[in-house]
Simulated assay, not measured.
Amino acid sequence: MSTITSKKEVKTIWDIPLESLYSLVTDFYKKEKDTIVLDYEQKIRLLAFFKQEKLGPFSSDKDSDTGYFDVVGSHRRKAWISLRDMSNEEARQGLIKLLDAATPRLKDYALQRWREEQRQLEKENCQDQREEKITQSAPTPPKPVAMKSVLAPAALWCTPKAARDFISQISTSPDHRVEVGPGEALTIQVPTSTKASAIFWEFVTEKEDIGFGLRYQRSPGEGVATYPVDQLLPVTKRDCSEDLILGSHQYMTQGTYMLQFDNSHCTSCKIVYYKVFYQTSTPSQ
């Protein structure tokens, strides 16, 4: 059976610091108190050490629950008072010494738990060091940058008095017809084709004019987060209820075209008929 005889020995006993050892001992007692054999005086003394360590020296305001006819409470109070000005560390020593004398299992439990905690701590420290080394050795990825694109100008022309013929040719296909509500704007996105080098478009309205513009955004590349959106043709009113409006653009990179139909200036709905196709060896829809 181990014994604790002085404050100096407690700080080094079992190679466990006093504060850590006290935590392990109280944890052991909570789990095993039903199997630890203590007589009445030892239980009273154990509680006195616990209160002294937690609350300090006795004072009546710290023990107001003990009544006049509470015999057990009176004994506990006297045991606490007898510790006088015992320090926090000395109270811990007293509690550990009392339980160590009562059960030989305490030392084995404390040593096992302490070693487990130290191994876990070493494991966590090693993991932190490995993660730090990996972070330090990992190359810093290049920051994505926005790039300016250089594009050829877009072409736009018209075929006079061709609107009715164009509508009669494609009016049966709902894919070539869109409605733009009053005060609204509509954008049709058209991706480029890897098998072509130019895009063509044609459009008319059933009645009245409509605003039209063309935008283009190049697809992101390696190390490039995004390219700016280029306004190839500004949104401008086009008289397209009688004339067929045509246009084309030569592209060198892959991206997305945005055909803009703007009816924000008008209070009536516009029906737009349009067609988009690419130029390969021969133009195809």
Rank of each mutant, 00 (worst) to 15 (best):
F69D: 12
Q112C: 11
V71N: 03
R113Q: 12
G247S: 08
Y274L: 12
T3C: 01
W114A: 15
E179G: 06
P283W: 07
Q52Y: 10
K275P: 00
R92H: 02
S281Q: 13
R84Q: 15
K11W: 06
C126P: 01
A163C: 06
E242N: 04
P153A: 11
D262K: 06
P234T: 09
A102V: 11
E242P: 00
S284D: 07
A162M: 07
K270T: 06
S23L: 11
S137D: 14
Q231T: 15
A102M: 07
G221W: 03
E116C: 07
Q120W: 05
Y227P: 00
F261I: 06
K33S: 14
D262E: 07
F200Y: 05
D230V: 14
R92P: 03
L214S: 07
E222I: 14
Q127T: 13
M1K: 10
K107D: 15
R113M: 11
K207I: 05
F49Y: 13
V150E: 05
P144M: 14
S149R: 01
S74W: 01
Q42S: 13
K97F: 06
L233C: 06
T236W: 01
A225C: 04
D85I: 02
H265T: 13
V204A: 08
R238N: 10
L232G: 03
L106H: 07
I36H: 01
V204H: 06
E32R: 08
S60Y: 10
A110I: 13
Q52G: 12
V276P: 00
S60E: 14
P142F: 11
E242C: 02
K207M: 07
L246H: 11
S197W: 01
Q120L: 09
P191G: 14
D175Q: 09
P191N: 11
D128Q: 09
Q52A: 13
G255W: 06
D108M: 08
L151N: 07
S64Q: 10
A146I: 15
T267G: 04
Q254W: 07
W80H: 08
P142E: 15
A155E: 07
A162L: 02
V145S: 10
L156P: 00
S219I: 06
S59Q: 04
I245G: 00
E41Y: 03
T5G: 13
V204R: 01
K195E: 15
R215E: 14
I188P: 01
S284W: 04
S149Y: 02
G255E: 09
I81S: 08
P191L: 11
Q250F: 08
T256Y: 03
L47W: 06
T159G: 02
L47S: 12
E9D: 12
E32L: 03
K30W: 12
T280Y: 03
L99G: 02
I134M: 12
V72N: 11
S137W: 05
Y109I: 04
P283D: 12
A196C: 09
G181A: 13
P142K: 13
I36L: 04
T192H: 03
S60M: 09
S64G: 11
S281L: 15
L47K: 09
R76N: 08
D209Y: 07
F49S: 03
S23F: 02
A102Y: 05
W14A: 14
K143L: 13
V272T: 04
Q254P: 00
V25L: 05
K11V: 11
Y109P: 00
A198M: 05
D239Y: 05
T3K: 06
L121W: 05
